[in-house]
Structures are given as structure tokens and as C-alpha cells.
Design a protein around this nucleic acid. Structure first.
Length: 888
RNA sequence: GCGGAUGUGGCGGAAUUGGUAGACGCGCUAGCCUCAGGAGCUAGUCUAGGCAACUAGGUGGAGGUUCGAGUCCUCUCAUCCGCACCA
């Protein structure tokens, strides 16, 4: 053992040891019931690990180590979400083939992971872009197709007319093409969809199974995304046509107040309009406005045109106009609404703009509701009402329904409509089917063949995988790259054998990430996506860790995929993840100067800035290291290129070691909070590790031959007793903190223990056997508890303490605490007089209430406040405090 | 606009869930050691007063419940996040 702690030397040594001994390799083993699946979201191989990754995987790695030490069989795998756009961008920009680019990145990042010392079972690595993996994406797609869950429909994409390419939402933000700046258009093309909406109800219902383990806000976001809404469909006959227009409403009770039917601008009913050209022009305009710069947060003004059609209110028989309005969405409900301005804010706004009549049909029933504004005796309330009354109430002016309450009327009016054949109760969802088609090269090809004779033909399972060609033209313009590869496109029909063409769309990368963690359980299986028994052993995932940005899409899709896999008999549970943890961002200070352009900023990397502090430690100013001139101190922001405040994990490892970096990210903040990266903080982590290292170095020689019996025979000195108490109490605290993923307080507890060891002022040379026993007990516990945070150092110290074969193979177990030792035999009791702290007394931990009270009242300082006063009562909280209430 | 969360020293954050506010770390101050280094060690560090023991105040703000409130209740302010014409 070196006298000093040299991280790089130790880290290399143990990384080699782990690799050679297969320390983190796990196998499903029916005889080992205690098993734990610890999963972190797999990264996109952009080429470089960033601090967000370091944090994400440090959290998971710590938990994996903890469970291993507790004797669990732990599955902790890693893989690559390696399909996706950046690879294609690299191909366009630099002419590198996506596969080459991707694999080089993976190579590099895997090396970075290894330098961090994460305890992955690398044999299980899953890589989305390999045919061995995406073959099963295709297989699942075919299974969905068989079950009617995959289908094709026309749907719009962002289209750059200048380049003739399809753009993602991101690439067309602001309504212009990110590359050439041309105005983006919407174009309708046929695309593949998965019927996730068939599972909407289950996706909502099954949330009850995971409520305890998932963050409330993630479930809320998913609930909102699914957007369940119960109401009714009502059909309005359109006069002079055979058409009926169906609307969806949650408030049938307000139907007597309907002044119009408003349909989406591109609603099919428009065909029957006598002024359909006007309506079409309107629809075109709305369309164009939407495609163009849509500022986030900007709400369009409500606009509409009268279609000239008239519809019959099936309840009242009243004739009302049909309008087309920009505020009615084609995609939601039926694309048509009944407009009830008196009781809906949007309809109110619309009616005001076009001077449509407003009729109040719901009155308040409680004084807590806003007072009724109305002109008695006048039907049209346009003048009286200042805003819509959207609450439930009592029905008025509603024919036979008048006098009923909203709640009952909503139900019964829907039933009435159903009985009369002009409507039904209905539930709608905001959730839409999952569009999986991408007009891209770098994705799993959708296994479909188009044959002139047979139509749409699925590729037979036995012909999978449909392999992505090695090369394609990535000119950045023209057609989808796959369409330009004749060897790929031209094939024969699996049914009739005649020439046919392949589907050139590839799959959304969310498909890959929907089931990858099942593949980890059996990553090399060539006959099936995975072996059911292996998956049954490991899944569902015990703990999943990742960024909150995946709260909706990825996590909803993977829940959907799980339910589908259940339905085809691959697994037998509903929910893939028992516990979910969403970690906060890594943020760092920003420094900048005003740029040449007004409002532009030139950012300085924190490493190139000197910060000046006042004597309270407040940052008062900062200067550039380069020129010594001042720079402006900005707020903490997410690390990244745009703010030039990123920190390279490699540099951190070089300067401080992987262990210190890992310890710091786990200590600096609770895992769900944002983490403020401060270089000084990692210094503190390193200091702590050095301290622990030097304790072991100082004491290890003196531990020989000290047994528990020998130590106990001599009894423990008060100091040694105190140290043992601290040790056992710390084990208790750290163990509990782990269960709640409270790493920051776990580390704090270990630091306290190390401070206690520092206060134990006995020299190793002159220590009694009992002292040496106590110190060894402390150090062994500390080293093992530190393993999840700083595994390399812990391995080194464990070896220095005389254990062979590495921590996991040496049979080491997470330390157990002795309840009796963790408790104190003397406790300090706070004594308050009238709620103010006036003194502290020490009593036996087992002291009765009476004894505690007596001790408190006997205290001199307390008596100074109570003598001569009338005592009203005393409150005693055993083990904590005494409050004496006196009359003033 | 709707929904959710959070406000504690100069900073990140603790506080056994109604019981000693500020653990632990960073930063800062002073001292020691020193080949004077961004190393190590020791002490101090919520605010005000005092040499000190101590006293008073203090958890965004205002009320309230309670022997006792960072924690519970009411109102209010601020910040952050999500959704955004969802009928």
C-alpha cells in the first residue's frame, strides 16, 4: 500500500481485476431468490460521455453495489440506443457512413464508462443498430400487424420544399428548415402507426400498480398526456343533406344553449357547404399560418367562417348555423363541437367576435359560484354576460330538462340520445396512435413489401431481419436515402414471387428503447427476442433511473410494449418498472460578455475564469484568465455547448479520479434535484477519500491478531465505546438512506463517522486491543459502505485490511448494525421554559418520564427561569425534551 | 390560463415527520506546518449586542392552531416545471 492515495494507479488496477475476474457478471439462477434488476436509461452514442451520464450511471451503480453487498443477484447491464438522426447528420456533413460513425462513438464511450469503473455486465451489451437486435424490432412489428395493432394511414409530416426532405419537429422549429431556412410545409404521406390508443384505458388503470414507486409528477404527466375525457357524442342532422354531424361534448346538459355547430376547417362536412370555396380558402389560410412560425406560447386568435349549412339541435329541434372555426381540432374528439357560449370560455370568445347570440341555460345553485348575470325576460344574454359560466348548476330554458342538476342531466341526456338513436355516451382520449414511420436511413427497416398483385405483404418471419444496406447516398436533399438503394428496394413478393418493392420507411428509435431491457436478460438469443424463463427471473425492473425528459414518450411506449408482450404471452405482468427515479439536470455557472451583435453573448468556460469573492464567500466578480478583463457572472444553467459551461468527465477523472467524481455527484445534492457542478466541490470529495485512505494506512499494521474476544475481555474505553456507537449508528443511517436513494445524506453520515475517527486520539502503536478492535470495526464498515460510491478505493482498502480476492468474492457483506450499540445509553435532553430553549441535561436513555422531568427541573440554568414562578405544567417527550410551562 | 412542485446561512443542502434549526460539504477568516503549493493540520463561521457566560431575533411574507411550528391550517408573494384552444 502506498503512503499516499494515487487514484489513477488504484483505479486502473481494480478495473483490470474486475474485468479479468468477471466480478459483475450475473446469471439467472432459480436457486437465488434474492435478485435485483437495476437499470439506467441507455445512452445515445453521441461520442462523448457528459456529466448527465456520469450522474445517471453513478446513481445506478451505487445501488447495484449496495444490493450485491446485501447478497442480491444483481443484473446491471448497459447498451446503446444507436439508431437515430445524428449518425445520419454526420453522414451528410462529413461523408462518414452512419454505422462507422456510430461504432466508433460506441467504442470511445465504452472506454469512458470503463474508466468510470461502472459495474456493468458488459457481456450483455445490447446495440440497437445491429441486425441481431433490430431483427426483433421487426418481429414485434409483424406481431403487431397480425393483431391489427399496426396499420397505415395518411398523416402529415414536416416537409422542406427546397431540399425535398422530411424534417423532424426539432428540425423545423420556427417553421423554417434548420439547414436551408426555407419555409416548412405540411405534407400528407402514408405512414405506419401502432394502436397504442387501444391500450389507453389500461395505461391509465395500471398506474395504480406503480403509484408507490413512481414519482407523482411523472404519473400526472402521463395522465394528462392520455387525457381521458368522458362525455357524449351527439349527432346533428344537417338540413337539406343526408349528412349528420357528430360532436363530442362533456356538457350535454348545456345543449339547449348551443348557438352553432363549429367544425374543424378541414372537416369533411365542408364539402356540402354552399360556400365551400370560401371555407377552403379559410382552411388553407389556417393551415399556412400554423405551418409558419408558431411561437411557443402564442395562441391564435379565434376565427371562423359560416359554412351556410344549418344543423338541427336534436334536443330542441332548433336550427343553428354550422361554422368552421380554427379553434376546433381535427385530431381531437370528432373534429366538431357544439358551441355553447354561455358555458364555455372558447365558445364565448368566438360568439363575441362574430356577434352570435348567447343563451344562458345553467344557473348557479350555490352562493360560492359567481353570481348570475342575466337580463330577465330576454333570451339573448350577449350583453349581460361578461364571461362564460362553466360550472355545474341547475338547468334552465332547457325544455323538459329544466330544473335538473348538471350531474344527473349529463348522464341521462346521453342515455336519452342513445335511446333515440342520435347519440351515445362516449369516452375520448387525447392520446393518439404512435406514428412509427421515419423517412430515414438510420433505423430498423419496416418489414413490409409492396406487390402490385398482392398489395401490402408482411415479410415472413423466416426472412428476418430485413437488413439495412451498408451504404446509401446522403446528399441531404432528394428522397429518403433507402429509396435510392435499388438492391434494397427491389425484391420479390413473398407471396407470389413476382418483383416487388420494399417499404423504405424505418422505425422510430423509441421502438428500440421500448423493450431493450428485456433483451438484456438474454442478449444473444437468435431464436426469439428473449427466453421467457430468463426474463421471468429478472423482470420486472426493480429500479429504473433516468432523466425526467423521458417521463412521457419513452416511459409510456415501454409500458405499452410491455402490455403487448403480455398479450402475446411473452411475459405475465402489466408493468415493466416497479420503481422509477428521475434525476435532476447537471447545471454549471455561466460567464459571458456582450457580443458584437446587440443582445448576443460570448460565453466563457468556467475553467477559463477567475472568480473573486468577498469575505463572506459571495461571488463578487469574475475575470477572464486569458486577458484579465471582467466577465459577467450569469446564472446556473444546464451544462452544454451553447453556454460553454460543460465539463468533460475525462478531465475530471484525470485530475481527481473516477471515485472522487462519483462521490461528488452523489453527495452534492439529492438525486432528484438539479446538481450544481462546482469544481471546488469535487476537491472536498477527494479530501474525504484521502482521509479515509490515510486512516487505513496508519492503522492497518496494528490490526494483526485482534479478535473480538480479546477485545471484549478488556472492555472498551469510553472513547472506544463512543466510536463504536458512531459506527453502528452510521451503518443504520446509511442503510436506511440507501433504501430511499438518499445518497447525499448517506455520504454525510460517512463523513461524520470519519470525523469521529479523527477525534479518536489514540496512536496505533499505543492502542489497547479493544481500541484496535473498535478502529478496525469502524474502518471495515466504512470501507464497505464506501464501495458503492468509490469502488476502486474501497477495493484497495479492503485488500489493505487483509482481505483477498476482491470485495465481492471475499464474501464481504453490507455491514449489519447492532441495535444496542446504535442507541446511546446517555441522551441529551433539551429543556425549554415556555417553549424557549433554556438548558440541556443528560439523562440515561432508558430514563422514565419522571426521572427526565426531575433532571430537567433540577438544572441550574432552568431554575433561573422557573424559580419563583408558578408552574402550570411540564411536557416530557422521552429521549428528546422537556418543556416547562410557567405563568409569567 | 390550467395543473404540479419548491421557497431554510454567502452556496449545495440537513432536520428522526409537531420536539435542541442550520448536520455534512463548499466557500470564507485566523493560526500551525512548509521545498510558500490549488497540499496537510487546528480553530472559527445564521444575524445583532457582549471579552465571555449569555441575551434577543431568525426557515419568502402576514395571520392562525399548539405547551411547542421549518414541519399542520388560511391568505399572500416569488421561482421552477409540465400542459396549453382537448370541447
Amino acid at each position: 500500500m502506498d503512503e499516499k492515495y494515487f487514484p489513477e494507479k488504484i483505479e486502473e488496477k481494480w478495473q483490470r481485476f474486475w474485468e479479468e475476474s468477471g466480478a459483475f457478471e450475473a446469471e439467472s439462477d432459480a436457486s437465488r431468490e434474492k435478485r435485483f434488476y437495476c437499470l439506467e436509461m441507455l445512452p445515445y452514442p453521441s461520442g462523448f460521455l457528459h456529466m448527465g451520464h456520469v450522474r445517471n450511471y453513478s446513481i445506478g451503480d451505487a445501488l447495484s453495489w449496495f444490493r450485491r453487498l446485501q447478497g442480491f443477484n444483481v443484473l446491471h447491464p448497459m447498451g446503446w440506443d444507436s439508431f437515430g438522426q445524428p449518425a445520419e447528420q454526420a453522414a451528410i456533413k462529413r461523408g462518414v457512413m452512419p454505422r462507422e460513425w456510430t461504432e466508433k462513438n460506441i467504442e470511445h464511450m465504452r472506454g469512458q464508462f470503463k474508466r468510470m469503473g461502472f459495474s456493468f455486465d458488459w457481456r450483455r451489451e445490447v446495440t440497437a443498430h445491429t441486425p441481431e437486435y433490430y431483427k426483433w424490432d421487426q418481429w414485434f412489428f409483424l406481431k403487431m400487424l397480425e393483431r391489427g395493432l399496426a396499420y397505415k394511414k395518411v398523416s402529415p409530416v414536416n416537409w422542406c420544399p427546397a431540399e425535398g426532405t422530411v424534417l423532424s419537429n426539432e428540425q423545423s422549429s420556427g417553421g423554417v428548415c434548420w439547414r436551408c431556412g426555407a419555409a416548412v410545409e405540411k405534407r400528407d404521406i402514408e405512414q405506419w402507426f401502432l394502436r397504442i390508443t387501444d391500450y389507453a384505458e389500461q395505461l391509465l388503470e395500471d398506474m395504480s400498480e406503480i403509484e408507490r414507486g413512481w414519482p407523482e409528477r411523472v404519473l400526472t404527466m402521463q395522465r394528462n398526456w392520455i387525457g381521458k375525457s368522458s362525455g357524449a357524442y351527439i349527432d346533428f342532422q344537417v338540413r337539406d343533406t343526408d349528412e349528420r354531424v357528430r360532436v363530442f361534448t362533456t356538457r350535454v346538459d348545456t345543449i339547449y344553449g348551443a348557438n352553432a355547430v363549429v367544425v374543424a376547417p378541414d372537416h369533411p362536412l365542408v364539402e356540402h357547404s354552399p360556400v365551400k370555396d370560401d371555407v377552403r380558402r379559410f382552411a388553407e389560410r389556417v393551415r399556412a399560418e400554423r405551418a409558419a412560425a408558431r411561437d411557443p406560447g402564442a395562441q391564435e386568435e379565434k376565427e371562423g367562417v359560416n359554412t351556410g349549412l344549418l344543423a338541427v339541435n336534436p334536443f330542441s329541434g332548433e336550427l343553428i348555423p354550422v361554422w368552421a372555426g380554427n379553434y376546433v381540432l381535427t385530431e381531437y374528439g370528432t373534429g366538431a363541437v357544439m358551441s355553447v357560449p354561455a358555458h364555455d370560455e372558447r365558445d364565448f370568445e368566438f360568439a363575441q367576435k362574430y356577434s352570435l347570440p348567447i343563451r344562458r341555460v345553467i344557473e348557479r345553485i350555490s352562493h360560492e359560484q359567481p353570481p348570475a348575470e342575466r337580463d330577465p325576460g330576454v333570451e339573448d344574454q350577449s350583453v349581460a354576460m361578461k364571461e362564460a359560466f362553466t360550472e355545474y348548476g341547475i338547468l334552465v330554458n332547457s325544455g323538459d330538462w329544466s330544473g335538473r342538476l348538471s350531474e344527473g342531466a349529463i348522464r341521462e341526456m346521453a342515455e336519452f340520445a342513445e335511446a333515440r338513436g342520435f347519440g351515445e355516451r362516449a369516452v375520448t382520449y387525447r392520446l393518439r396512435d404512435w406514428g412509427v414511420s421515419r423517412q430515414r436511413f438510420w433505423g430498423a427497416p419496416i418489414p413490409i413489401v409492396y406487390c402490385d398483385a398482392c398489395g401490402v405483404v408482411p415479410v415472413p418471419e423466416s426472412d428476418l431481419p430485413v437488413v439495412l444496406p451498408e451504404r446509401a447516398e446522403f446528399t441531404g436533399s432528394g428522397q429518403s436515402p433507402l429509396a435510392g438503394v435499388p438492391e434494397f428496394v427491389n425484391t420479390t413478393c413473398p407471396k407470389c414471387g413476382k418483383p416487388a418493392r420494399r417499404e423504405t420507411d424505418t422505425m422510430d428509435t423509441f421502438v428500440d428503447s421500448s423493450w431493450y431491457f428485456f433483451r438484456y436478460c438474454d442478449p444473444k438469443n437468435a431464436r426469439a427476442p428473449f427466453d421467457r424463463e430468463k426474463v421471468a427471473y429478472w423482470t420486472p425492473v426493480d429500479q429504473y433511473i433516468g432523466g425526467v425528459e423521458h417521463a412521457v414518450m419513452h416511459l409510456l411506449y415501454t409500458r405499452f410494449w410491455t402490455k403487448f408482450m403480455r398479450d402475446i404471452g411473452l411475459i405475465n405482468f402489466n408493468e415493466p418498472v416497479k420503481r422509477l427515479m428521475t434525476q435532476g439536470m447537471v447545471v454549471a455557472e455561466t460567464f459571458y460578455r456582450e457580443g458584437e451583435e446587440p443582445g448576443s453573448k460570448v460565453y466563457f468556460n468556467p475553467a477559463d475564469v477567475d472568480v473573486v469573492r468577498d469575505d463572506k464567500g459571495r461571488v463578487s466578480s469574475a475575470t477572464s484568465t486569458a486577458d484579465g478583463q471582467p466577465v459577467t457572472v450569469g446564472p446556473f444553467e444546464k451544462m452544454g455547448k451553447s453556454k460553454n459551461n460543460g465539463v468533460d468527465p475525462n478531465e475530471m477523472i484525470t485530475a481527481y479520479g473516477a471515485d472522487a467524481a462519483r462521490l461528488f455527484v452523489l453527495f452534492a445534492a439529492p438525486v432528484e434535484n438539479d446538481l450544481r457542478w462546482q469544481e471546488a466541490g469535487i476537491d472536498g470529495a477527494l479530501r474525504f477519500l484521502r482521509r479515509v485512505y490515510s486512516f487505513v494506512h496508519r492503522w492497518r499494521e496494528s490490526f494483526g491478531g485482534v479478535t473480538r474476544d480479546a477485545a471484549a475481555a478488556g472492555g472498551f474505553s469510553p472513547e472506544a465505546g463512543r466510536l463504536r456507537h458512531e459506527t453502528h449508528r452510521t451503518i443504520e443511517r446509511v442503510t436506511n438512506d440507501f433504501e430511499g436513494l438518499r445518497y447525499n445524506t448517506a455520504v454525510a453520515a460517512m463523513m461524520e463517522l470519519s470525523n469521529a475517527l479523527g477525534d479518536f486520539r489514540v496512536a496505533p502503536g499505543s492502542a489497547a486491543p479493544s481500541d484496535r478492535f473498535a478502529v478496525r470495526e469502524t474502518l471495515e464498515a466504512l470501507v464497505l459502505m464506501l464501495a458503492p460510491f468509490a469502488p476502486h478505493l474501497s477495493e484497495e482498502l479492503w485488500e489493505a485490511l487483509g482481505h483477498e480476492g476482491g470485495i465481492l468474492r471475499s464474501g464481504a457483506r453490507w455491514p449489519a448494525f447492532d441495535e444496542a450499540l446504535a442507541r446511546k445509553d446517555e441522551v441529551e435532553i433539551a429543556v425549554q421554559v415556555n417553549g424557549k430553549l433554556r438548558g440541556r441535561v443528560s439523562v440515561a436513555a432508558a430514563a422514565t418520564e419522571e426521572e427526565t422531568r426531575a433532571a430537567a427541573l433540577a438544572d441550574e440554568r432552568v431554575r433561573a427561569w422557573t424559580d419563583g414562578k408558578q408552574m402550570v405544567k411540564t411536557v416530557v417527550v422521552p429521549g428528546r425534551l422537556v418543556n416547562v410551562v410557567v405563568k409569567q
